[in-house]
Design a binder for these strands. Structure first.
Lengths: 400, 400
DNA sequence: ATGAAAGCGCTAACAT
DNA sequence: ATGTTAGCGCTTTCAT
């Protein structure tokens, strides 16, 4: 009897962690002969602890390999120090390039993670297929596990976003604004698309276009399209020969151009503008299949600056989004809002950057050498996005 | 007085969640006129609740928009239902391909996430630069926030891995074995590299090689190299002209081949075998810079099957790793071990797959048409990795 | 079928 | 400088 009680008093750690060696704050306190409060103070570098006590406690912690339990800390602090990131998982896309399409979301992810890491917060992540009917449910229950949520545009509708924002601070990435309840961080698609189109029209003197649009549900696609059209409209000598709509996938870009080529009577545009790089790659593939040379026979441009675009022959002219910064800024803003949920909602627009490579017709000189010797430097000429995004400072617009 | 106490008794939610509408289990219980135990039972679909009570409770939950607090659940259940994933963030690589290098880690990530999602667990993620001195510290403190850890090879040393595994179940991805304490899930690099080399030697009759090795710290690189050498050794007529070592980055591959080309006296191999695709891309770029055609002048092959490889001209012959499955299997195994930490450690080797495209000298017919019209189908011929990995079932080896 | 109540491991306000 | 203690929100025996 006596032995048993003594034993159990002495035994350290949580009894249910078979084989795993985990000890609690109480274990530390007992072994160091102090109260849990003191151990906690030492743990968090609070001042009001004598040097000797601190040393003793520290040694015990070390010896026990004590690591505080996150759940208990969260509960007690009323703060989880965790934020959630939910983005689209196009992996379920039909034909699609599992890997390539990860690019955007994953780069945002890295931006968020880096920001969080610096503040010692954690990142909980989850993916949703586009239009996943259970997306809202997932987000909703996730709200109980985090202090804030970063959500990609297109996961759930506007109304649901608002409902979510009533439970937990929310920042939307790459989207448009949803009432006054969520913050938005997005890239300046409009300016980028404007700069790109003007480059084609004003520098290359292109007079006829085909436009490959993105899904109508994507705000990005909308902005790019409308910027494109506005530039065209300003030049009466320029004609939009035809338009098609893709899903942002390579395959859909290929199909769009195949269809264009089959049109009767055939109308070959001087340039094909695609709403993103994936579709531009598909477009180039389709043209190659018909022995049409880019940019000699027709120029092709994309949007996003995904990595493979620079490897293409010819290297793809496109617009770069500050993808990683998108994640960083979204996260920074979310953290602000977690600290003060009453903050007015804000929309932050990050500048984009025109990347002139070869597929638009520039730098013909470098064609033929198959593959650039140095990708990043040699084939990139940077042009400020436009007046609108030209300043290095992102725009901030107060919420409504 | 009376009013105040009545008011506070009636007020719902956590008082410190300014503006955010969060309610607790107690709120639900009170409003439904039942005990918290009952609400909890309803919440988890336990049977022993009368239909009427259940209905009433459900309605209250709905109306309140109640979402259980994850921290409290974790604490009470003694299980967080969270697993942690830590992988290398090569983003900090010098010259590097920000985006491209994300590929491997991020695909593993998606595999893990999908597995977790199906079980309603959450994923906590974190990245470390390679050789980050604070990596162990990060992992260590992360162990208090998760039930298990998936760690990429190369983040921390063997000894530290063992220390970690004493606190929390650990599975290592793409690595070698570390004592008897961690599970390992990895791809069959050896078999893949063997199949690739034999293809070159036996099918194409290649007699002279240059090998671009990976970092000596990477077990992957080691296995690929040794398989390569073993095949060479079996054919006395085959010669390894020279070797160089890169860092797995495009740039390093480019430099390796530049150096090779500068050697005196010049010795041009018939094939260049690179330890991964990134370096193979660099190699092809370097060759193009010297007006050398692939595969006519020299064959080039890689390893990994990263997406841009299929877009190259010529499309890159390589070996595919089941990257996503790596994540899935690692996660599945981790979950098993979380449920029974006493499980013997296991090493699981997933089969690799030789992807014969054009850069090895195959399918010359398709060259010239710039860019494949259909990447995935048209340019891929699949060959079973080798006898060793030929079976579709992964090998499992009991732990020591 | 339902309720009461004892924790889960930690923090922080309040004592001393 | 250090200790006491009342929660944090939920789960889960053990009664009833």
């Amino acid at each position: 009897m006596r032995l048993e009680s003594k034993e159990s008093w002495l035994r350290l750690g949580r009894p249910w962690t078979w084989g795993l060696d985990v000890s609690t704050l109480y274990d530390c306190a007992r072994l160091a002969g102090v109260s849990t409060a003191t151990v906690s103070r030492v743990l968090h570098g609070h001042d009001r602890v004598s040097a000797t006590t601190r040393a003793r406690v520290l040694e015990v912690i070390q010896q026990l390999g004590y690591v505080p339990d996150g759940a208990a800390q969260s509960l007690s602090r009323r703060r989880k120090q965790v934020i959630g990131l939910v983005s689209v998982d196009r992996a379920s896309d039909p034909i699609a390039l599992e890997s390539s399409s990860l690019l955007f979301a994953d780069e945002v992810l890295h931006g968020v993670e880096a920001t969080l890491r610096a503040k010692d917060w954690s990142l909980l992540i989850s993916f949703c297929g586009e239009g996943d009917p259970r997306a809202f449910e997932r987000l909703y229950s996730m709200s109980g596990k985090v202090d804030g949520l970063i959500v990609s545009e297109g996961i759930v509708g506007s109304e649901q976003l608002v409902r979510l924002a009533a439970k937990v601070p929310v920042v939307v990435v790459a989207g448009s604004r949803h009432g006054a309840s969520t913050d938005v961080v997005t890239a300046d698609n409009y300016a980028g698309s404007t700069a790109l189109t003007r480059h084609l029209v004003e520098l290359h003197g292109i007079r006829s276009f085909h436009y490959v649009d993105g899904p109508s549900s994507a705000p990005n696609a909308l902005e790019r399209r409308s910027a494109f059209e506005n530039v065209i409209a300003k030049h009466k000598e320029v004609e939009l020969v035809s338009t098609s709509r893709g899903t942002f996938s390579v395959e859909s870009g290929r199909r769009a151009v195949e269809a264009m080529l089959k049109e009767q009577p055939p109308r070959m545009p001087e340039a094909i503008v695609c709403a993103n790089d994936h579709m531009a790659i598909g477009a180039i593939q389709a043209l190659a299949g018909h022995a049409l040379a880019v940019p000699e026979d027709v120029a092709v441009v994309g949007f996003d600056d995904i990595y493979p675009g620079s490897l293409l022959d010819p290297p793809l002219t496109t617009v770069r989004q500050p993808t990683r910064s998108l994640g960083e800024r979204a996260c920074a803003r979310l953290l602000e809002r977690v600290n003060d949920p009453a903050l007015p909602s804000v929309i932050e627009v990050l500048p984009t950057e025109l990347l002139v490579r070869v597929s638009c017709g520039c730098g013909e000189g470098t064609r033929g050498a198959r593959g650039p010797a140095r990708m990043s430097a040699q084939h990139r000429r940077t042009v400020s996005g436009s007046r609108r995004s030209g300043s290095s400072k992102p725009r901030r617009t107060a919420g409504s």
